[in-house]
Amino acid sequence: MVAQLPLALQLREGNDLSNFVAGDNGALFQGVRETVMGADRQAFIWGAEGLGKSHLLEGAVRLAQQEGLEACLLPAEELLPLSPGVLESMEQFDLLAVDDCQHFAGDRHWEEALFHLYNRLMARGGRLLVSASAAPAALGLMLPDLATRLAAGPVYRLQPLGEEDLEALLIARARTRGLRLEPEVAHFIVLRSERSPAGLVALLNRLDRLALAQQRSVTIPFVKDALGW
């Protein structure tokens, strides 16, 4: 029998600060909020891939917009094929969030453009969030002026989540999809899968689609079956 194909329509789940599971990153999470609210002028967040840096930055941009601020996300990887001129006049925003800044490292033109943007933004009283794969001093930036500026505010390392937090995240994300996930099933999945929020959410998407197609609920036998574990 051919499996029923689920509709490709899915409610998009926004990357919000409200659905970010902070775990041991409480100080960081509060620091990001405080940068948006203006208590800090800047913050730098670094950590491995898949831990939720982009989620945090997108959430911060949304929060800023909800607060009536003009905010813009600047994903370095997406910008890289363009000219550094794309950063011109970006200081007109109240908050800028530069995601995956490591992609600019080693490219003198982008580094200079970011350096000048930093100066203009700070001169205007704007706020800046930056995420990267490593701390400012370890990013391999060519411009020391830029590295020290990025480190002029609090620098936070995003810590991986522990098992319990990953399970809580999985259950919460499942709930927003209207999917019921028992704690023991979440536990079963977390013990066997890639231990990053991004990896788990990707896995949940797969399970969600398969469960819908097969009209089954997500139980341990289903997970074993579906993922071949």
Partner: peptide, 30 residues
């Protein structure tokens, strides 16, 4: 969401008084 938050949401909007024109502003020509 990345594209939305980079290119679309930050556009600033201004409508003409009669509502006949909607101008979207971006920071630079790029």
């Amino acid at each position: 969401s990345q594209q939305y938050n980079m290119w679309i949401r930050p556009l600033q909007v201004a409508a003409s008084a009669d509502g006949a024109e909607l101008t979207l502003f971006a920071p630079n020509r790029f």
